[in-house]
């Protein structure tokens, strides 16, 4: 069996303690949460930290709170917790859609939202979800807290704005009345990384027109939302013709690579197809949520 290279291990007792440990052990120290990305890399000896700082005891970061206009999600919130939360299902169905297809139920018992976002794997689902929901990442370091938009936080494949001596501690997701969202992924098998996936969030105005929209793509070489769709959708009533055009724009905006999961044109096609699907579902969920409010 594959085995990691030797390292020293320390368990952090608080966020401040974790930051102090990161500061003390420097560049060759790594934080481990669920460990389901880092430990396999260490077993392959592609990652060889000298120090592993275990933050699983930071229960202070394991929370889900509806706090006025935002939902605050602690970085140590496990995937399973997100998937099973009624508030999350009601407010952000896209998160439930995505969580259902992230790895498998057992991995989801250990994996955390913070770990997923910080790993920033190009095929990782929650980064897209957070882009689409226009979430804000709260990062704490020796100099205090920083609030970063996803565009600022997520710098590219495997790269975030979190410095070596900082921790992602919270994700804040704005709550919008009259909104609906959805995520759909194509995978070769349950539990596989995405061939491609798309997420959308739509807010409907009182007159039924789209007042806000965001579309994001996973595993097709796009680290930010498909901003081109906003211009054609905002102010319009949801319509299949618009979804088709949005899909076309999404397929043009992405930049996939050919691999074992499929050729480039297939992945572009999926960007198109899945964009249409998630917009359709998001709009109908938004409409349902509007009618819930009126009732």
């Amino acid at each position: 069996m594959q085995i990691p290279a030797p390292f020293d291990y320390v368990r952090a007792s608080s966020v401040d303690n974790a930051l102090a440990l990161l500061d003390r052990h420097g560049a060759e120290s790594r934080v481990v949460a669920g460990g389901h990305s880092l430990l396999p890399m260490m077993k392959l000896r592609l990652a060889r930290p000298d120090w592993l700082i275990d933050i699983n005891d930071l229960f202070e970061l394991d929370y889900l709170l509806v706090d006025g206009p935002v939902m605050r999600i602690g970085a140590m919130t496990r995937h399973t917790t997100l998937l099973e939360s009624d508030d999350v299902r009601r407010l952000f169905p896209i998160i439930c859609d995505a969580e259902r297809v992230i790895a498998d139920p057992i991995v989801r018992n250990r994996g955390t939202i913070g770990g997923s976002l910080c790993q920033a794997d190009p095929a990782e689902d929650l980064s897209t979800v957070c882009h689409v929901l226009e979430a804000v990442a709260v990062v704490r370091g020796p100099a205090g807290e920083r609030m970063l938009s996803m565009a600022e936080f997520h710098r590219g494949p495997y790269e975030t704005a979190v410095a070596q001596n900082e921790l992602l501690i919270e994700v804040r997701v704005p709550i919008r009345a009259g909104s609906g969202s959805a995520y759909e992924k194509v995978e070769r098998r349950v539990g596989d990384w995405a061939v491609a996936a798309a997420g959308a969030s739509v807010t409907l105005a009182g007159d039924g027109t789209i007042s806000q929209v965001a579309v994001g793509l996973t595993a097709v070489g796009l680290d930010h939302n498909v901003t081109e769709v906003e211009a054609i959708l905002v102010g319009q009533a949801p319509a299949e013709t618009l979804f088709i055009e949005a899909g076309r724009l999404a397929s043009l905006a992405c930049d996939p690579l050919a691999d074992q999961r499929g050729p480039i044109d297939y992945k572009r096609h999926l960007a198109d197809e899945l964009t249409r699907r998630v917009l359709r579902v998001s709009c109908s969920r938004a409409a349902a949520s509007v009618s819930d409010i009126t009732i």
Partner: peptide, 19 residues
């Protein structure tokens, strides 16, 4: 390699004994 940790299934090949 699944075992229960505090009653929840985990894959024990991807958990350190220290954890």
């Amino acid at each position: 390699c699944v075992v229960l940790m505090d009653g929840q299934p985990v894959k024990s090949c991807t958990v350190l004994a220290a954890m």
